[in-house]
Design a protein around this nucleic acid. Structure first.
Lengths: 220, 220
DNA sequence: AAATATTTTTAGACAACTCTAAATTAACTG
DNA sequence: CAGTTAATTTAGAGTTGTCTAAAAATATTT
């Protein structure tokens, strides 16, 4: 049985592997988990012994196949619980993360599969992230940052890169949610802020900061 | 924040206080939690310092008012999750306990109150036990053991004293569930086994063992 | 390439929770 | 009530996961 601690390491390493190619370094893990690097070194050695990570001292770590499977299962649980919280318990998308951080460590496999069924086998969580299947497969739709889009583009919001409460609440205030259709009407040379139209509502201006945290898909 | 360990001690002590009046002894706690008595002694000292229990060495322990409140909150969570598992995820009543043992430690107060609402503010869990209210109040309906009833009594099953998987599955096999109406048709002098009628089904015989683990309410 | 800076690891320690073995206190028994 | 038994506590130790401070390895800069 994996400890909650191990599960958190697995998840962190998985996320870091997604972010950049190649080995994940000790400091990055330490930062993500808010731990000291020396603590992480210790843990990596233990996890290497358990065959959860490949670890080369001074170089970095990678998940083994077993580690990757475990990480995906945790992410599956996390995202399914988020869907539950939003759809069934009326939580808003900025409130679910912390609670799901706890729920994801509940071990029962039966529970999570029944929950999946109860929710109607959702494909994405409230932030637009794909939910891994029970067998560990995950379909990653290619997404672009709104920031990369040219004037005139029409896109659909498919996810957020940042899930901090503050950012999500800001999106709510702007009237942007998952699935919103956005037309890019202008980009300021000065600060790259964007004038956008959100489904016929009055035009608003968003900062480059916002645009570079919004994942979108081009509409045909 | 209370640790999972502390929460388990609180719950165990609460249960033991319900079972017999007066001080709860170290050995009883150790047995319930499957720990060694020396471990329990250590923990009781720590919990006394945190004002969760009153503890007199060599005598025993009692919950403080604060400890009692915490214990009731944990029990509230446990029972609400059990209802969720049975009503929404189609678990059977013998499967829910272990999973609820994990879920009861999820901290979010918001979560549990919304879950309560989602479930329609249930009053009892799948084993007939009362669910404490958010403010910590618990209404304990007076219940009797079927074992105590005389021939000719007509009663309604209101709970089980034992929630082990084996016992619950045996009840399923006998056709006994929460709310079943039972008529006591005979009691054998030899072994106190009972002949009973369950809602018009053919008469069955149950052992004293079964009868002394079934909580019932007399019908008028 | 040598010097400096950064990253990572090692060494030693601590808190929480558990154990075994031995000592102590309380309870029972003849 | 003295002796024995049972319950409880104390003492010392182990595991997991964390830390700080110092040492070692790697990377960067001039």
């Amino acid at each position: 049985m994996r400890s909650v601690t191990e599960e958190n390491y697995l998840k962190a390493i998985y996320r870091l592997m997604e972010e950049h190619e190649g080995l994940v370094n000790t400091n990055a893990i330490a930062e993500k988990l808010e731990l000291k690097p020396s603590t992480v070194t210790d843990m990596l050695k233990k996890m290497a012994q358990k065959n959860l990570v490949h670890y080369s001292p001074y170089k970095g770590a990678l998940l083994t196949e077993e580690g990757r499977k475990s990480a995906l299962l945790i992410i599956r649980k996390h995202r399914l619980w988020e869907v539950f919280l939003v759809e069934k318990l009326q939580f808003s998308w900025d409130e679910v993360h912390e609670v799901a951080e706890e729920l994801e460590h509940i071990t029962s496999g039966r529970l999570i599969n029944r929950l999946d069924e109860f929710l109607g086998f959702p494909q994405i969580d409230p932030h637009g992230d794909a939910i891994p299947a029970a067998n560990g497969s995950i379909r990653q739709a290619k997404q672009t940052l709104l920031y990369e889009m040219a004037v005139g583009s029409i896109v659909q919001v498919s996810g957020v890169k940042n899930t901090d409460r503050q950012f999500l609440q800001h999106l709510d205030k702007l009237g942007i949610s998952l699935g919103s259709t956005i037309t890019v009407d202008g980009i300021a040379d000065f600060d790259k802020s964007m004038e956008i139209l959100i489904e016929g509502a009055p035009e608003v201006r968003i900062s480059a900061e916002v645009a570079s945290n919004l994942l979108v898909q081009k509409m045909n």
